[in-house]
């Protein structure tokens, strides 16, 4: 009863967009200060580092054993804060008028 294959069909005639391509489409007003701060000390206890896969914008990255957030890619869903088992991610709304503007939400 397990599915054997999934057909990965590329859209006909069009280049398949990567996540990076799609993030580029999002209208964003970038602030010069991050609305995400990480308490790195808490990360050392963390086993599964769910922040690295829960983010729909792939904002989080582990560099030299340290979690970093590319906050300018953030789509402001807030899932990272909710999912972080250690409460290490302090996620605030960007300042008024900054961050994403969805046109087709």
């Amino acid at each position: 009863m397990t599915p054997e294959t999934i057909i990965h069909a590329a859209p006909h005639g069009k280049k398949k967009l990567t996540l990076e391509d799609k993030l580029y489409l999002v209208k964003t007003k970038k602030d010069n200060i991050s609305h995400i701060t990480i308490e790195h000390k808490k990360c050392t206890r963390c086993q599964n580092k769910v922040c690295l896969r829960v983010c729909p914008a792939n904002t989080y990255e582990e560099r030299d054993g340290k979690i970093e957030a590319a906050y300018e890619n953030c789509l402001e869903c807030g899932s990272c804060k909710v999912a972080c088992p250690e409460g290490a991610i302090k996620w605030e709304n960007p300042r008024g008028g900054f961050g994403v503007t969805f046109l087709n939400g």
Binding site: I6, I7, H8, A9, A10, P11, H12, G13, K14, L17, L19, K22, L23, L25, V26, P56, A57, L75, E76, C77, G78, S79, V82, V100, F102, L103, N104, G105
Partner: peptide, 22 residues
């Protein structure tokens, strides 16, 4: 989007925005 039932419905279109929300 690439499930055999969905792919034919979305093919050829132009993705203009990608969004997320809780």
């Amino acid at each position: 989007k690439s499930h055999p039932s969905i792919a034919p419905l979305v093919r050829g279109g132009e993705t203009v925005e990608y969004m997320a929300h809780m």
